[in-house]
Design a protein around this nucleic acid. Structure first.
Lengths: 195, 195
DNA sequence: ATTTATTTAAACAATTTTGTTGAACAAAAA
DNA sequence: TTTTTGTTCAACAAAATTGTTTAAATAAAT
C-alpha cells in the first residue's frame, strides 16, 4: 500500500492558514483554498471532510502552539524584564506572520455553532500574574491590577499590526514606511511598560 | 402622496449596523437583517438594492461620523491633557457600543472589490500630530515619533474591548467582571500616556 | 377619489457554495 | 500478477443566497 501521504494534507492546512490568517481572506471558500494549494477541491473535503472542520483544526493548532510558546516564556527562569522582552519578541513575530489570526478568531466566535476558543493551560498565566504583582511591589512598574499590565502589553503589540491597513491610510504611509514604524515599537513598548 | 418614509430605511440601516458592528455577525445575510428588523427581505433590496451597497453605506456613515467626532476633539480649544481625555471618552464610548466596527472594517478591506476606507479629512490629524510634538518638547510626554503616541493611545483603548471574548476566557472572567476591568482603564490610560 | 409611495408576499432565475459519490489511477502488499 | 489501499478528480445533487419581478395590499397626500 502507498505510504500515507501527509504532504497534501499539510499543504492544505498551511494554505488555509495563509489565506485566513496571513492574507485576511475571511470568506475564503474550499475552492479558494484548493486553487491556492494548486489542487482539486475534492482533496480538501477528502482530508478534512468539511470546511468548518478544517477551520476548527487550524484554529486549535494555532492557539495551542501560540499559548504554548507564550507559556514557555512566562514560566522561564529569567529576570522579569527579559521575560517581557521575550513576550514582545514571540508575539510580534507571530503577529507579523499572521496579522489576522486574532481578528479571525474574535469574529468567528460570533458565528453560531463555532467553539474555537481552545482550552488553554491557565497555569503559566496565573503564576505570571503573581510575578507581575511582585514586580509592582518592587516599584519597577506601576501598581494596578496585574491583568492591566498584560492587557496593555498585548494591546500595544497586536493592535497596530492587525489594524495596519487602516492606520497606513490614516497616516498616509506606504507598507514599507509603516513596517519601519512597527519595527521601532519593540524598544518603545519595553520603555512604555517600565515607565 | 405619503411623506417619504425614512422610518423603515433608517430601521434597516440601524439593524444592519447592530448586527455587523455590535453583535459581530460578520456573515449576516439580507434575510438575517430583514428578520432582525421584523420585515420582508424585499424591503432591504427596495431601499438599498444590494447587500454590498447597504454595507458600503453604513461603513461610510460610521467612519465619517467617528472621524468627525475625533477631529472635533483634536482641533478643539482645550489644553492637551483634556483633549486626550476627550479622545479617550469618545473612543471608549464608540467601542463599547460597536466593538466589532474596526474588526469588520479591516477584514472587509481584504475582501476583493471593497473600497470601504472613506476619505477622511487629514487636517485635524496632522495638526494634532504637531501639537503632540510640541508637548514632547515640553516634557510632559515621552519623546518619540508622535504617530506612536496616537497609535499607543488607540491601541490601549480599542484592543481590549474588541478582543474581550478572548481575554475574558484568558483571564477566566464573566462579562460583568470584564466590563469593570474596562471601566478602570480610562483613568489608567491617561496615567500611562503621561508617564 | 385618485394618485403616489410604501410594504408584503410569492415566485423565480442565477449564482455560489457545499458536500458526496464513483470511477480512474498509482503504489504497495499479497 | 492480483489484490488492496490510498489518492485524485470530474460530475452530481443539495442547499443557501442573492437579486428581480409581479401582484396585491396599504396608507397617505392631493
Amino acid at each position: 500500500m502507498p505510504a500515507k501521504d501527509t504532504g497534501t494534507e499539510e499543504l492544505i492546512r498551511s494554505t488555509a492558514k495563509k489565506l485566513f490568517f496571513k492574507e485576511g481572506k475571511l470568506h475564503a471558500t474550499t475552492q479558494d483554498i484548493a486553487d491556492a494549494a494548486g489542487m482539486n477541491r475534492s482533496a480538501v473535503h477528502y482530508y478534512f471532510r468539511t470546511r468548518d472542520q478544517l477551520i476548527a483544526l487550524i484554529f486549535a493548532e494555532s492557539m495551542q502552539a501560540l499559548s504554548l510558546r507564550l507559556g514557555k516564556v512566562m514560566s522561564a527562569e529569567l529576570p522579569f524584564r527579559e521575560k517581557i522582552q521575550g513576550l514582545i519578541e514571540v508575539f510580534t513575530n507571530e503577529m507579523m506572520e499572521y496579522p489576522f489570526q486574532e481578528v479571525f478568531l474574535v469574529t468567528e466566535i460570533n458565528t453560531a455553532g463555532h467553539d474555537l476558543v481552545t482550552k488553554i493551560d491557565e497555569g503559566p498565566v496565573s503564576s505570571f500574574l503573581n510575578e507581575i504583582e511582585k514586580e509592582m511591589h518592587l516599584g519597577t512598574i506601576e501598581k494596578t491590577d496585574p491583568k492591566h499590565f498584560l492587557i496593555n502589553l498585548f494591546s500595544l503589540l497586536s493592535y497596530p499590526i492587525m489594524m495596519s491597513p487602516i492606520y497606513r491610510q490614516f497616516f498616509g504611509m506606504n507598507e514599507h514606511q509603516f513596517d519601519e514604524l512597527i519595527a521601532e515599537r519593540r524598544e518603545l513598548i519595553t520603555r512604555t511598560m517600565f515607565k
